[in-house]
């Protein structure tokens, strides 16, 4: 394009619009959850106890902290502290990896107990418990996928920051990646009590 047009607010607004679409995407799964919960409240409580609160709690901490570090990274670049910003980005990615590893151990434990979609052992536990675990796997799976995408996005932006393509004057890219990252913190804030903490 011959005339470079720059509109940072527009870019942020576009990102927010995109985040809305992500929220609606997840809301489909939350609708299924809500309906099933109202149908099988007892079974859901039983199934929820089979999940490990410690895994879930640890992951909550990890995600909240990563949200903090990426928010700090944005402030850092605004104030021109490139080095701090880079460190904070890499810490965020590190936390994302911790989150995924944690998830991996949690899931392998459950799968080894025969709890996974389509398993016979799960089917034997009745429709309520089955529906809980089916939804749990798909919601957490979709969430995990997005965490993976978000971490990759931050990695790309961090490299660009190192190459001075993201600068204190021009940091919308980092800000938008941070917005994306916060969203999956948000989703987890709801996911955690709904799946791990029902009495």
């Amino acid at each position: 394009m011959s005339i470079e047009h720059r509109d940072d607010t527009g870019a942020r607004f576009g990102m927010w619009l995109f985040l809305y679409t992500e929220v609606i995407l997840f809301s489909g799964l939350f609708i299924l959850y809500a309906v099933a919960l109202s149908k099988f409240p007892q079974d859901y409580a039983v199934a929820s106890h089979k999940l490990n609160v410690w895994f879930g709690g640890a992951n909550t901490l990890v995600l909240l902290t990563s949200s903090l570090t990426i928010a700090l990274a944005v402030s850092a670049i605004q104030m021109g502290r490139k080095k701090q910003c880079l460190t904070l980005c890499w810490v965020t990615i590190g936390l994302a990896i911790v989150f995924l590893i944690n998830k991996f151990f949690e899931w392998s434990a459950e799968i080894s107990h025969g709890i996974y979609p389509g398993s016979e052992q799960l089917a034997a536990m009745g429709p309520g418990v089955t529906s809980f675990f089916n939804l749990y796997y798909f919601t957490a799976g979709l969430h995990g996928l997005h965490v993976l995408i978000g971490a990759s996005l931050i990695a790309v932006v961090a490299v660009m920051t190192a190459q001075d393509k993201v600068t204190p004057e021009r940091y919308t890219l980092l800000e938008n990646s941070a917005l994306y990252w916060h969203l999956f913190d948000l989703v987890w804030i709801f996911l955690f009590p709904l799946y791990y903490l029902i009495l």
Partner: peptide
């Protein structure tokens, strides 16, 4: 997955 399957909740 059975998310819409009556037999599986």
């Amino acid at each position: 997955a059975g998310l819409f399957d009556a037999a599986r909740g």
